[in-house]
Design a protein around this nucleic acid. Structure first.
Lengths: 330, 330
DNA sequence: CTGAAAGCGCTTACAG
DNA sequence: CTGAAAGCGCTTACAG
């Protein structure tokens, strides 16, 4: 590949001059600018980003660490993130933390080694302490998605899990349900814990006794939604509604109910969280709580860009709320 | 961040020595190795990957360009790709071509600028000529997914679209269907064209006249599956089966049939392609053709690694075939 | 076994 | 307006 030196030779100018025309900085006589452009053109020259990054101490890249690539949810996130990055002229470097604390930290390190200007971290497994440690250890700013960090010097965008759960639960309560089962996310994750706690709290506040048999733990996949629902049915404890902590599990649950000959919503109502597009194409259409993943991602990217450009040193935490979407399943 | 120079000072040795212990190359006395390790440890030193890449003319990274992040399909691809990359100690840099020729070429350029060791390109819009041009222009090896390039010097892994379509169509024909509608992918994409052609060809070979009213073009989303199916119903042309060119559209179609009071499979059979997990959780369960996306991605990554390491200069084309998965919808 | 020096491809004060 | 030189943080022959 041609280097700046090749361009220099062909154009008969110094590197400084070529660099100036590449970057549009400083003064360059129009005629020599033309000569340089022509040389770059005929050589098909493109600057080496690595060298630029090294010289500038700035790589024009945003590191993004995801805990998984599953489902529509992360697809939306990635789409939005790549769009914003592209429009800002930044490269997005995506890594999979594979839902594993060690791998996630490893991923952060390698992104730091690559001198990303900022890192966006979506982790299900890292604790608040882990975040604090990371922040103290590395000099690259970090934006955290899906965790509300109280610390005002942190950069985070999150979703009000408690509020979303209340929306779903109150909807079921209003419909007259008292025996409401819950298919939770993994209770290893903070999101899983928060939703499950809010589920219980809402029941308590409604004066309903908690029935442990009606709480089963899934892992957010269709398959566990199905299996968890089967367990609920087999448990023998009666229930007239299921609060599934995400749409995929809700869909799995609906299938299990169908297979057991239980009619939705007549014999059992089902609601999820996420409001995936898919919810509209199953039978019956799924009630859910919209999780504005696009807006959340957008906000995280804006924070990241501000941080990368040095326009801010910390952005605080921005919290988003869902809204109820009622369809035929409740 | 500490640099190699900081380590030198603290350890009282030269950069050459530090470099040797970082990379485990050359001879280093055990005692000085220890001193250097200690220095790196106390400084929390980590080598700057950009500088290493510049000096080595090798970045240890694989560029991956996707045409979209939609759906389970690309999630599987990304998961497999990140896993293989991680295990090989390579970074994966993921970019979204947004299904746009210009953006895809731009993405290739920027990956080349970043000196990726190899690029994997999944494009729906690039023509064979575009691939050839790219290959001629850039010096980084390219692996193409989802295109069967005849050229033996190319690196490609692809899916036998014709065979997959025949599997689905022959299954419907065997079930006695004669009036088979087709909801195609975008006919802008090569995959869309190939499946649609194979659909027609299979009919012709079975001695069935093609009814243009039974062919509608979708764009692979749930929503267009629904709308296309509505169009088919409204067209008035009778049909007893639908061949949807992917599962998402098949699911949309099933919903449209349901809403129109048409029973699946009794009054209309439906089959898709992809064998998404979701297909098992809708009612009725979806028949499909399995598309071994994980194996395909794995093969592409292996090619990429071989190319990146210089173990091969070209790998040729590797073709995969699907297999029929019959469930309740047909 | 270890270090001085040149080089990877860029940028940016500093002179002129 | 332009160029020589130093620097970004590494690696690697080459000497010793």
């Amino acid at each position: 590949m041609p280097t700046i030196t090749d361009v220099c030779k062909l154009a008969g100018v110094s590197k400084a001059t070529v660099s100036r025309v590449i970057n549009g900085t400083g003064q360059v006589k129009e005629s020599t600018r033309k000569v340089v452009f022509d040389a770059m053109e005929t050589l098909q020259y493109r600057p080496n980003s690595l060298a630029q990054a090294l010289a500038n101490n700035k790589s024009n890249s945003i590191g993004l660490i995801l805990s998984t690539f599953d489902g529509n949810y992360f697809g939306s996130l990635l789409r939005e993130a790549t769009n914003v990055a592209h429009d800002a002229g930044m490269q997005l470097i995506v890594t999979d933390g594979r839902n594993d604390t060690k791998l996630e930290i490893e991923a952060v390190n390698s992104l730091v080694d690559r001198r990303c200007d900022v890192i966006i971290l979506y982790s299900r497994s890292l604790s608040e302490q882990d975040f604090a440690d990371l922040k103290a250890r590395i000099s690259v700013p970090i934006v955290v998605i899906n965790r509300c960090l109280k610390d005002q010097y942190s950069n985070a965008v999150c979703f009000d899990q408690q509020f979303a759960t209340q929306l779903a639960m109150n909807h079921l309560l209003q419909k007259g349900h008292r025996d409401i089962a819950c298919i939770s996310l993994s209770l290893q994750s903070q999101t899983g814990q928060l939703r499950q706690q809010a589920y219980q709290q809402t029941l308590i506040e409604a004066g309903i006794e908690i029935n442990p048999a009606l709480l089963v733990e899934g892992d957010s996949q269709l398959g566990t939604g199905y299996q968890c629902c089967q367990k609920l049915i087999e448990s023998g404890s009666p229930f007239s509604a299921i609060f599934a902590c995400n749409d995929d599990m809700a869909i799995g649950a609906i299938k299990a109910l169908h297979d057991a000959g239980i009619k939705v919503p007549e014999q059992c109502a089902v609601i999820g969280i996420d409001n995936e597009p898919l919810g509209q194409y199953i039978e019956p259409q799924l009630s859910s709580v919209e999780l504005p993943i696009k807006a959340i991602t957008h906000a995280a990217m804006q924070m990241a860009l501000a941080l990368a450009k040095g326009e801010a040193t910390s952005t605080g935490t921005q919290e988003f709320r869902g809204k109820l979407v009622v369809r035929a399943s409740t």
